[in-house]
Simulated assay, not measured.
Amino acid sequence: NLFDLLAPQLPLLPQWVKAKAQGVVCDGVHFQVDWEGRQRHISLTMNWVAPDKLMATLGDVTEWMLGQQRDKAATQKLLDERAAQVLSANQEMESVLNALPMMVACWNHDLTLRFANRTYADWFQRERKSMAKLPLAEILGMSQLRTSTPYIQAVLSGSPQSFERKSDGPTPGAVRYGLIQYLPDIQHGNVQCFYELISDISSEKQSRLALAASETLLRRAGRLANVGAWAIDLRRRTLFWSEYMYTLHGVGVDFVPTLDNGLLFYSAEDRVLMNQAITDAIENRSTWDLEMPLNTADGRQ
């Protein structure tokens, strides 16, 4: 009966009576009762209908409450599934980034580290977990930071950057070179962060430095002894001539020697011998010594 349903709520009755004003005093108080062997959700509304009369309205909102609970459970399940999918995707992406030979990092706008892959941590000889939120200055050092500052300012303005950076190697006295790329992450017109990609170009850089030193030596030797020299960069398939080679061939310094046009200064028969000698040198590391006429561009031999 009504009294049995209201009995647990009677402690609240003095609060409703104290309102002393006509209108809704209590609207939508929910409680549970054991009704006909089943837990039911009841909504109680109290209204003053006269100065001395208080009307109670009870409504069975069990199905509505159960529907709310089902919707809440379904929503939570969907959120949990989406969270699991995001976590799985992040783990897969992290595995991919850690497997890359290239060093990858992400820097916040305030130059604190957001993410770094394992290769990046190894490059700087640090534990990856300990690098989180570290400032760029602490990882690079002040000297390297000063060198990189113009590029950092440019990428934070939205412009991608690419440059080479020299740094100390993992052993005392060792030097290494990295090709650095800064890529801005622009959202709604603002740079939120930027990505740093580092490729180890130490071997290539050292080869270029060695080649430059050899070229300098060849130029000096050519000037002293009227000797021409040439070299082939097998990786780039490019041909280098020393300064005196241009004089020997009767061409200006604006002439661009290649593997093809460099052989045109010799007869067809001699070109076959020259090609064979070059091929043997590349494939078998063999030495060779050939003597043959050279036809210059200005008609001399």
Rank of each mutant, 00 (worst) to 15 (best):
N1D: 10
N1Y: 01
L2M: 14
F3N: 03
P11Y: 02
P11G: 05
L13F: 15
L13R: 10
A19K: 12
A21T: 10
V25W: 03
C26F: 04
D27T: 02
V29L: 15
E36Q: 15
R38I: 04
R40F: 06
H41K: 01
T45H: 03
T45K: 06
T45A: 00
N47V: 08
N47I: 04
W48A: 08
W48D: 05
V49D: 01
A50L: 04
P51E: 09
K53A: 13
L54V: 13
L58H: 05
V61G: 03
T62V: 06
K72W: 02
A73W: 04
Q76S: 11
E81F: 06
E81G: 01
A83F: 08
V86Q: 11
L87G: 11
A89Y: 12
N90R: 10
E92Q: 15
M93H: 05
L97A: 12
N98I: 03
M103R: 14
C106T: 02
T112Q: 09
L113A: 03
R118H: 07
Y120W: 15
A121S: 13
W123Q: 02
R126V: 05
E127Q: 09
A132L: 15
A132Q: 13
K133P: 02
E138C: 06
Q144E: 05
S148H: 12
P150L: 14
A154M: 11
A154N: 12
V155P: 07
L156H: 09
L156R: 07
S157L: 09
S159G: 08
P160T: 06
S162W: 03
K166N: 01
K166V: 05
K166F: 03
K166S: 04
S167A: 09
S167I: 02
G169K: 00
P170F: 00
V175M: 00
R176E: 00
G178S: 07
G178P: 05
L179R: 13
L179D: 11
I180A: 07
P184V: 07
P184R: 07
P184H: 09
D185S: 07
D185L: 15
I186Y: 12
H188P: 04
C193R: 14
F194T: 02
Y195N: 08
L197F: 15
L197V: 11
L197R: 06
L197N: 10
S199K: 07
S207I: 13
R208T: 13
A213K: 15
S214C: 11
E215W: 02
L217T: 06
R220Y: 11
L224G: 06
A225W: 03
V227K: 13
G228W: 14
I232H: 06
R236K: 14
R236P: 00
W241T: 07
S242L: 15
S242V: 14
E243V: 03
M245R: 13
T247H: 10
H249M: 11
G252Q: 01
V253N: 04
V253F: 11
D254M: 04
D254H: 10
T258C: 04
D260I: 10
N261D: 05
F265S: 10
Y266A: 06
S267C: 04
A268L: 06
E269Q: 13
D270Y: 10
R271I: 08
R271Y: 00
M274A: 07
M274P: 01
Q276S: 05
A277D: 00
I278P: 05
T279P: 00
D280F: 04
N284Y: 12
N284C: 08
R285H: 14
W288E: 01
D289L: 15
M292E: 04
P293G: 10
G299P: 07
G299W: 12
R300S: 14
R300Q: 13
Q301T: 14
